[in-house]
Measured scan of single mutants.
Amino acid sequence: GSPLAQQIKNIHSFIHQAKAAGRMDEVRTLQENLHQLMHEYFQQ
């Protein structure tokens, strides 16, 4: 897949890990990143 698709997959797993660790501030930051990446992805 594209590097962007790979990045989106990575962030999904980072979010999963951050949630499991209870780091909600990190989850929020990652979700904002994910949102931006998704936006770029669909602009392609």
Score class of each variant (00 low, 15 high):
1 G>S: 12
1 G>C: 04
1 G>R: 06
1 G>Q: 11
1 G>N: 13
1 G>E: 11
1 G>Y: 03
1 G>T: 12
1 G>I: 13
1 G>V: 13
1 G>K: 09
2 S>M: 13
2 S>D: 12
2 S>A: 12
2 S>F: 11
2 S>E: 11
2 S>H: 11
2 S>P: 11
2 S>C: 14
2 S>K: 09
3 P>H: 13
3 P>N: 14
3 P>G: 13
3 P>C: 14
3 P>I: 12
3 P>Q: 13
3 P>D: 14
3 P>L: 13
3 P>K: 12
3 P>E: 13
3 P>F: 14
3 P>S: 14
3 P>Y: 14
4 L>Q: 02
4 L>G: 02
4 L>D: 02
4 L>A: 03
4 L>K: 03
4 L>F: 06
4 L>T: 04
4 L>N: 02
5 A>S: 10
5 A>N: 06
5 A>P: 06
5 A>F: 14
5 A>L: 15
5 A>R: 10
5 A>Q: 09
6 Q>I: 09
6 Q>F: 07
6 Q>K: 06
6 Q>G: 05
6 Q>R: 05
6 Q>T: 10
6 Q>D: 10
6 Q>W: 06
6 Q>M: 09
6 Q>E: 13
6 Q>H: 07
7 Q>I: 09
7 Q>W: 10
7 Q>E: 08
7 Q>D: 04
7 Q>A: 11
7 Q>M: 11
7 Q>P: 01
7 Q>C: 04
7 Q>L: 13
8 I>P: 00
8 I>L: 05
8 I>H: 00
8 I>M: 04
8 I>G: 00
8 I>V: 03
8 I>E: 00
8 I>K: 00
8 I>N: 00
8 I>A: 01
8 I>Q: 00
9 K>W: 09
9 K>M: 10
9 K>F: 07
9 K>T: 05
9 K>N: 06
9 K>P: 01
9 K>E: 07
9 K>Q: 10
9 K>I: 09
9 K>D: 05
10 N>D: 13
10 N>H: 08
10 N>F: 07
10 N>L: 15
10 N>V: 11
10 N>C: 12
10 N>E: 14
10 N>Y: 08
10 N>I: 14
11 I>E: 00
11 I>K: 01
11 I>D: 00
11 I>A: 04
11 I>Y: 06
11 I>G: 00
12 H>Q: 14
12 H>C: 13
12 H>K: 14
12 H>L: 15
12 H>T: 09
12 H>S: 06
12 H>R: 14
13 S>W: 14
13 S>G: 10
13 S>R: 15
13 S>M: 14
13 S>I: 15
13 S>F: 15
13 S>L: 14
13 S>Y: 14
13 S>T: 12
14 F>L: 15
14 F>S: 13
14 F>V: 07
14 F>C: 05
14 F>W: 14
15 I>N: 00
15 I>D: 00
15 I>G: 00
15 I>F: 01
15 I>E: 00
15 I>W: 02
15 I>L: 08
16 H>A: 15
16 H>Q: 15
16 H>G: 06
16 H>S: 12
16 H>V: 12
16 H>P: 01
16 H>Y: 09
16 H>K: 14
16 H>L: 13
16 H>E: 15
16 H>T: 11
17 Q>T: 08
17 Q>W: 06
17 Q>K: 11
17 Q>D: 09
17 Q>V: 09
17 Q>I: 13
17 Q>G: 04
17 Q>N: 07
17 Q>A: 14
18 A>D: 01
18 A>C: 04
18 A>V: 03
18 A>W: 03
18 A>S: 03
18 A>M: 06
18 A>E: 02
18 A>I: 03
18 A>T: 01
19 K>M: 15
19 K>A: 13
19 K>Q: 13
19 K>C: 11
19 K>F: 13
19 K>R: 12
19 K>P: 01
19 K>I: 15
19 K>W: 13
20 A>L: 13
20 A>G: 04
20 A>F: 04
20 A>H: 05
20 A>T: 08
20 A>Y: 04
20 A>I: 11
20 A>V: 09
20 A>R: 07
20 A>P: 01
20 A>K: 10
21 A>V: 04
21 A>H: 05
21 A>S: 06
21 A>F: 04
21 A>Q: 07
21 A>K: 04
21 A>N: 07
21 A>C: 09
21 A>G: 04
22 G>C: 03
22 G>F: 03
22 G>E: 04
22 G>M: 04
22 G>V: 02
22 G>T: 01
22 G>Y: 02
22 G>I: 02
22 G>K: 03
22 G>P: 00
23 R>F: 05
23 R>K: 11
23 R>I: 03
23 R>G: 02
23 R>E: 05
23 R>T: 03
23 R>W: 06
23 R>C: 04
23 R>D: 09
24 M>T: 08
24 M>H: 12
24 M>K: 05
24 M>N: 06
24 M>D: 09
24 M>V: 08
24 M>E: 09
24 M>L: 13
24 M>C: 09
24 M>A: 08
24 M>Q: 06
24 M>W: 15
24 M>I: 08
24 M>S: 05
25 D>G: 03
25 D>A: 04
25 D>C: 07
25 D>I: 02
25 D>H: 05
25 D>Y: 03
25 D>V: 03
25 D>E: 12
26 E>D: 08
26 E>I: 12
26 E>M: 07
26 E>P: 01
26 E>K: 05
26 E>Y: 05
26 E>W: 08
26 E>C: 04
26 E>H: 05
27 V>H: 02
27 V>E: 01
27 V>K: 01
27 V>D: 01
27 V>C: 03
27 V>L: 06
27 V>P: 01
27 V>W: 03
27 V>N: 01
27 V>T: 02
27 V>G: 01
28 R>V: 09
28 R>N: 06
28 R>Q: 10
28 R>I: 10
28 R>F: 07
28 R>Y: 09
28 R>P: 03
28 R>C: 06
28 R>E: 08
28 R>D: 05
28 R>T: 07
28 R>W: 07
29 T>G: 05
29 T>Y: 09
29 T>N: 08
29 T>F: 10
29 T>S: 10
29 T>V: 13
29 T>A: 14
29 T>H: 10
29 T>C: 09
30 L>D: 00
30 L>K: 01
30 L>V: 01
30 L>N: 01
30 L>R: 01
30 L>G: 02
30 L>E: 01
30 L>F: 04
30 L>W: 07
31 Q>A: 07
31 Q>N: 05
31 Q>M: 15
31 Q>I: 13
31 Q>H: 08
31 Q>V: 12
31 Q>R: 11
31 Q>G: 04
32 E>K: 11
32 E>C: 02
32 E>Y: 08
32 E>T: 06
32 E>P: 00
32 E>M: 10
32 E>H: 10
32 E>I: 10
32 E>N: 08
32 E>L: 10
33 N>I: 15
33 N>D: 08
33 N>E: 15
33 N>S: 14
33 N>L: 15
33 N>T: 15
33 N>P: 01
33 N>Q: 15
33 N>H: 15
33 N>C: 09
33 N>G: 07
33 N>A: 15
34 L>T: 00
34 L>D: 00
34 L>S: 00
34 L>G: 00
34 L>K: 00
34 L>M: 04
34 L>A: 02
34 L>E: 00
34 L>Y: 02
35 H>Y: 12
35 H>A: 15
35 H>T: 11
35 H>P: 00
35 H>N: 11
35 H>M: 14
35 H>C: 08
35 H>K: 15
35 H>F: 11
35 H>I: 13
35 H>Q: 13
36 Q>N: 09
36 Q>H: 09
36 Q>R: 12
36 Q>E: 07
36 Q>F: 08
36 Q>A: 11
36 Q>I: 10
37 L>Q: 01
37 L>D: 00
37 L>H: 01
37 L>E: 00
37 L>V: 04
37 L>T: 01
37 L>N: 00
37 L>P: 00
37 L>K: 03
38 M>N: 02
38 M>R: 03
38 M>F: 06
38 M>C: 08
38 M>Q: 04
38 M>P: 00
38 M>L: 14
38 M>K: 03
38 M>H: 03
38 M>I: 12
38 M>T: 03
38 M>W: 10
38 M>S: 02
39 H>V: 14
39 H>A: 12
39 H>M: 15
39 H>G: 06
39 H>N: 11
39 H>K: 15
39 H>F: 11
39 H>R: 13
39 H>E: 11
39 H>D: 07
39 H>S: 11
40 E>L: 13
40 E>T: 06
40 E>M: 12
40 E>N: 06
40 E>H: 06
40 E>W: 10
40 E>S: 07
40 E>A: 10
41 Y>A: 05
41 Y>P: 01
41 Y>N: 03
41 Y>L: 09
41 Y>Q: 04
41 Y>D: 02
41 Y>C: 12
41 Y>G: 02
41 Y>W: 13
42 F>A: 10
42 F>L: 10
42 F>Y: 12
42 F>Q: 08
42 F>I: 09
42 F>C: 07
42 F>R: 10
42 F>D: 06
42 F>G: 06
43 Q>V: 09
43 Q>M: 11
43 Q>F: 08
43 Q>N: 11
43 Q>A: 12
43 Q>E: 09
43 Q>D: 07
43 Q>K: 12
43 Q>R: 08
44 Q>D: 07
44 Q>M: 11
44 Q>I: 11
44 Q>K: 10
44 Q>S: 10
44 Q>H: 11
44 Q>C: 13
44 Q>V: 09
44 Q>Y: 11
44 Q>L: 12
